[in-house]
Design a protein around this nucleic acid. Sequence first.
DNA 1: GGCATCATGTAAATCGTTACATGATTGC
DNA 2: GCAATCATGTAACGATTTACATGATGCC
Lengths: 181, 181
Amino acid sequence: MANVSRLEYALLGLLLQNPQSGYDLRKVFAMTPMRHFSDSPGSIYPALRRLEARGWITGKGEQANARKRNVYRPLAAGKRAFVEWLVGTIMRDDVLYRLDELMLRFAFLDGNVEREKTLTFLDELEAGLDSYVKELRLFYKKFGAGIGQETGQLAFESGIQSYEASLNWARSARKRLERQS
Amino acid sequence: MANVSRLEYALLGLLLQNPQSGYDLRKVFAMTPMRHFSDSPGSIYPALRRLEARGWITGKGEQANARKRNVYRPLAAGKRAFVEWLVGTIMRDDVLYRLDELMLRFAFLDGNVEREKTLTFLDELEAGLDSYVKELRLFYKKFGAGIGQETGQLAFESGIQSYEASLNWARSARKRLERQS
DNA sequence: GGCATCATGTAAATCGTTACATGATTGC
DNA sequence: GCAATCATGTAACGATTTACATGATGCC
């Protein structure tokens, strides 16, 4: 099983929201806050073809347009794989190295899994963030003074604060969603 | 002029703090909060050789150790290039797509540039973040309600809050540094 | 008729990941 | 003597970036 890139999941998630062409997807990346994905044709078209080769999406369909747009739509296997990705248990390393991927997952939860799974996601995220923030604070207490450069120290503090901000967000998000049920 | 990767600058910066071997550098990445850099030999040793080929560092020196450690130290051209990277004007795209690289730069400012340049850096960063946060808030006001998924909306808010946290950090960092002079 | 946009593609280069591999040295 | 660690490397692979390229369509 080949690894699946963040970009591929992002494309799959957008296609699950509504079928569209590579060009449409490029525009999404270019004009919305998802812009930290590249909108270059050199990344998107090959990624779409990889998804198609894997049997997760198909580009055969309403192709007979005036413009020869190739509208992709997800297949059942694609939806299955996507949901599997969405509900995977959150590990320490995900929080440490792939927080952006976790946020991408979170954004796509609605509409693909039940609300309960979303709350589980937030619980796991909160636990992971909380534990890591504590670890960072401990490290700072022990070795922070030993960082020669003051800007180095400040940069470290920025890292901690950034994780704390995510933690606070996760907490308030859970409260907001819980209030509804 | 070939592009220089984040990893290469990180290695160069650490070598400017003190000369060390590839193995030492790997340990730094493995055990400190710089761990989001990979500590795999497959990335670090080739990067060191690229830096050496560019004439920025040299590994010739106290090699005749018991263990055949190869201790690298920076050359004048390396220091020049590094400082140039440190003091480059911060553009909108840096804030949007390369905030982590900006924080890396900031961490290495002390010891390589005068304090005044550090304050300039923070001013530019603050301005860039402030402008982008405003842009995001405006986008949210206009289109936020149109995001079908509630988790999508929350994810977006998380993005805004994350940039706000960075902005707050930049402001307090500047105040702290200004108080000293 | 000409220009901007629509729409898709390919090719080269490069960096990083993963996995494999090897020898020396220290400590028990 | 043996295991763990020290220390460096290589080789295959894959994804993304950058640049180049092409044709169709709508609009003025």
